[in-house]
């Protein structure tokens, strides 16, 4: 136990924890982004995907994953805060003049991007997971049309025991959310900061666990840059497409879409 304590107390130990939790979050954002992009395949696809996440998996697994992710975020933040406080203490008197020689802008602003990202995560969970942001409670009929739509698969409503399975209209929730310009602006800003956070963090986590050398540093830095931009564009394109009118709400949950109609005629 004492060795575990010394690991967690040491600067390197906390950096390793930050790297490992960072890895979980890096993989999560990619999965989340790929999931989100299904909105371009039609309302029925993204709704079916959301249905799968919520009801096909046992709810204990869903909560297990949620708690695991929250614990990872908590450890990541705890390590960042304690290390930052230690780092501040290590230089009580600063320089009158200090030049940065090679450190990148994103590497020097991890705390700034991290804090804004935390604020974003809180808003995002309240906005789309808890759906409790005032004026954006997407389940209430008074705010928007009722968000429950039939679950659609291969262009047909899914039936169970003779009744149509109903699901939440995630498509319309996202569209309605992003039609508010400042919400979209905040999402785009936050994913931009996520891009910055990742361009340093993705490569840095390999350094923290000791899996990097000069050659691989250059390669990983490049991969991190690409990864950051892919994640940024993948996330930001949804609010942008909504504001541009490319993505539209579909109160039928995809039953009325053209593709669904085509499949429907084929199947008949």
């Amino acid at each position: 136990m004492s060795s575990l304590c010394s690991f967690v107390q040491s600067t390197i130990g906390r950096k390793i924890l930050m790297a490992l939790t960072g890895l979980v979050l890096v993989l999560f954002v990619m999965g989340h982004m790929l999931g989100n992009l299904q909105i371009f395949l039609g309302a029925e696809v993204i709704n079916a995907y959301a249905y799968k996440l919520h009801y096909v998996l046992p709810s204990s697994a869903l909560w297990g994953i949620r708690i695991f992710l929250l614990v990872c975020i908590a450890i990541h933040i705890w390590a960042a805060v304690t290390l930052t406080l230690d780092n501040r203490k290590a230089r009580p008197q600063g320089y009158q003049e200090k030049k940065t020689i090679q450190a990148s802008y994103s590497s020097r602003t991890m705390r700034m991007s991290g804090i804004i990202l935390l604020a974003f995560i809180v808003f995002h969970i309240a906005h789309f997971t808890a759906r409790s942001v005032p004026g954006m409670q997407y389940e209430e009929a008074g705010v928007l049309t009722p968000m429950e739509v039939p679950l659609v698969k291969h262009g047909e409503a899914v039936m169970k025991n003779g009744h149509g399975v109903m699901t939440f209209n995630v498509n319309d929730m996202m569209i309605a959310g992003f039609q508010v310009w400042w919400v979209s602006a905040f999402y785009i800003l936050a994913t931009g900061l996520l891009c910055m956070h990742l361009t340093h963090g993705f490569s840095s986590m390999f350094q923290s666990v000791g899996l990097r050398n000069t050659l691989w540093r250059k390669r990983l830095d490049r991969v991190a840059l690409v990864y950051g931009w892919v994640v940024f564009l993948g996330f930001a394109i949804i609010p942008l497409a909504t504001l541009a009118g490319v993505l539209k709400s579909d109160p039928t949950g995809g039953l009325a879409t053209e593709s669904a109609a085509i499949i429907e005629t084929h199947s008949k």
């Binding site: 390197i12 290390l83 590497s107 340093h200 840095s204 350094q207």
Partner: peptide
């Protein structure tokens, strides 16, 4: 303090010790 993997040490080192050593 702790390392934030930004590489200012390597750039200032008169002996060009690389960040590899920290890894």
């Amino acid at each position: 303090g702790g390392c934030t993997n930004i590489g200012e040490c390597e750039a200032s080192c008169p002996k060009n010790i690389p960040l590899d050593m920290i890894a």
